[in-house]
């Protein structure tokens, strides 16, 4: 079992690193969206600092969503998913390993990029710890929920916009808690409550979403 998960992780990592654009594009998108806001609302440092928790979280959420659109698409188009369905391995384990590998590579890059963007928006450096922690706890939930949508829309020719429509409402709790944590630390209050909630949401989605993702994939492949 462990050997097989290892070879899955290796395969996913190879595929991601051999097409680095797909890895880098969401990061550029993240930076670009953050850069749009000062241009839209004006460069006042005070205003930007106050808005920064929400801005960073909305941008991160959209970047994660964007990176997930192609999560299963190439596997669907070249028939790999059929092989997955017809393998003796449990599909839920397969998809969980795949989504987590994707998160470790693309999600972590996002988390690492975020402090730079936060400093550009004027977020005080003592909030950076909370920022990183909230993104670390929140983005796995975003990836797993998004993977459900990606699985359901993988067979559609233009699934990208539909994916956003299906999944963004489900992202709202993470958005509220994540930006709430950052807001609290910006006001000098403790953010441990929100962080703990983010952690429990991550555990909940980690437990339930693999079944929804594999059900979605079976429906899309069986079409």
């Amino acid at each position: 079992m462990t050997g097989f998960v290892r070879s899955l992780v290796l395969r996913e990592a190879r595929l991601l690193f051999r097409r680095p654009a797909e890895l880098v594009n969401p990061l550029i998108f993240f930076a670009l969206v953050v850069a749009l806001f000062p241009l839209a609302v004006g460069p006042q440092a005070e205003l930007l600092r106050e808005l920064s928790p929400g801005l960073i979280w909305v941008a991160a959420l959209l970047a994660v969503l964007l990176s997930l659109d192609g999560l299963f698409r190439s596997d669907y188009e070249d028939g790999s998913l059929e092989q997955w369905m017809l393998s003796p391995r449990p599909l839920a384990v397969l998809v969980l390993a795949k989504v987590l590998t994707h998160w470790v590579i693309s999600g972590l890059a996002l988390v690492l990029l975020s402090p730079v963007l936060a400093l550009m928006l004027g977020l005080p450096s003592q909030c950076l710890g909370t920022l990183i922690l909230s993104l670390l706890l929140g983005t796995p939930t975003l990836s797993l929920l998004g993977a459900i949508g990606a699985a359901l829309t993988v067979g559609l020719r233009r699934g990208g916009l539909l994916l956003a429509l299906l999944i963004l409402p489900l992202y709202i709790p993470v958005l509220i808690l994540g930006s709430g944590a950052l807001q609290a630390s910006l006001q000098g209050m403790s953010s441990s409550g929100q962080l703990l909630w983010l952690g429990s949401l991550a555990v909940l989605t980690l437990t339930l979403s693999p079944f929804a993702i594999s059900a979605g994939l079976r429906i899309s492949v069986g079409e």
Partner: peptide, 13 residues
């Protein structure tokens, strides 16, 4: 062993 019309090969590998 199932080999479909789309054979399940990864072009990058």
């Amino acid at each position: 062993v199932w080999i479909g019309h789309r054979a399940g090969l990864k072009e990058l590998l």
